[in-house]
């Protein structure tokens, strides 16, 4: 067995941190460790936490981790917190650790890792799924995944997490705007945080109303709408109970296995796409690729036609279709 993987499995947190870095960088030196760890993953309950910026996601996650460590002391808990990278510089300010209490920050059974989105859209980084599986193999369960504070394009977290919490706060963007229909549809548990503010009950009623009007779900799970004040811990035990109840529901109904199967199939398809692309790219003649690219730039071909040409390896480029005005160079 790979040395690094063996250390991760024995609970060495420094080795775990290093393997996560390799996974994040898609670094070649981490490949053997990843392969050795992969069979050990697939056990952890993955809990996604999403919602608009300022709703209190980080504080709620910290409160949930604290609750877990108190009430399930035998379980080691991990957090992956994703924050956006700057599209201009690639840099990122990762500030979610600020919400960790001194106790959690030094708890040897808690592992907290910040992750920059590195250009990925959809609320997660490209390597988040792999990082989750490394933490899973290392024995952390549950694993909380906190998304970029987006609010409209959170499909990634639905695919990755077994249970999705959508966190909302009263008065953010007048309720309805801040929580789009897509967010409601992916939520297994809705949390109205900062419930000590006025309008918390109104926000809850609006969400319950939207849930009633939304599409009927096939499964029997009805998403609860729960009120919390994450800074004081109020309502946090109820959220934790809902998380456990949802896991039990998934396991009873068989949805847990379906979710795992779907996720792995998606991973296979992604890997296939990447491998096919690399294989094809290594074989194509550079001059030919550039010629098609230039034809595309002149808009003589659509991207679809350009791809078809390259794949079919057509011997020549077609003559450009006649254009009305002869303004081309």
């Amino acid at each position: 067995m790979n040395d690094w993987a063996a250390q991760v499995l024995q609970g060495d947190r420094r080795a775990l941190a290093r393997v996560l870095t390799w996974v994040e960088n898609a670094a070649a030196e981490g490949r053997a460790a990843w392969q050795a760890l992969f069979p050990h993953a697939g056990r952890a309950h993955i809990v996604g936490v999403t919602g608009p910026p300022g709703a209190g996601k980080s504080t709620l996650v910290a409160a949930l981790v604290q609750h877990w460590r108190q009430h399930h002391p035998q379980q080691r808990v991990a957090v992956l917190a994703v924050d956006p990278s700057s599209p201009y510089t690639g840099g990122a300010l990762l500030g979610d650790r600020v919400r960790l209490t001194p106790r959690l920050a030094q708890d040897p059974a808690v592992f907290f890792r910040s992750m920059a989105s590195r250009g990925a859209v959809g609320g997660l980084a490209q390597a988040t799924e792999q990082a989750v599986q490394v933490l899973d193999a290392a024995g952390y369960n549950p694993i909380f995944v906190e998304t970029v504070g987006a609010g409209q394009a959170e499909v990634d977290i639905m695919r990755l997490a077994h249970t999705v919490l959508v966190v909302q706060a009263p008065g953010l963007g007048d309720d309805i705007q801040a929580i789009k229909a897509g967010m409601l549809e992916i939520a297994h548990i809705l949390v109205v945080n900062k419930a000590d503010r006025p309008d918390a009950q109104r926000t809850r009623r609006i969400l319950e109303e939207m849930l009633r009007l939304g599409p009927r779900r096939a499964a029997a799970w009805q998403p609860p709408v729960l009120l919390t004040v994450a800074t004081t811990g109020q309502g946090v035990p109820q959220v934790a109970q809902a998380i456990v109840a949802h896991r039990q529901h998934l396991q009873r109904s068989g949805a847990w296995q379906q979710h795992e199967a779907r996720r792995l199939q998606a991973a296979l398809e992604r890997a296939l796409r990447d491998a096919l692309w690399r294989r094809w790219r290594a074989r194509v003649e550079p001059g030919r690729y550039d010629a098609v690219l230039q034809a595309l730039a002149r808009r003589e071909l659509t991207p679809d036609q350009a791809a078809a040409q390259l794949l079919d390896d057509a011997p020549t480029l077609p003559t450009p279709p006649p254009r009305g005005d002869a303004g081309s160079p």
Partner: peptide, 25 residues
């Protein structure tokens, strides 16, 4: 961050143990 680095900011009043633990994780 503006120089392209990923900066993990831990906030105020960190003990040396908290800082070392954050550096490790």
């Amino acid at each position: 961050r503006d120089a392209g680095m990923e900066v993990i900011y831990t906030g105020l009043r960190q003990t040396p143990e908290m800082i070392a633990e954050a550096a490790l994780q």
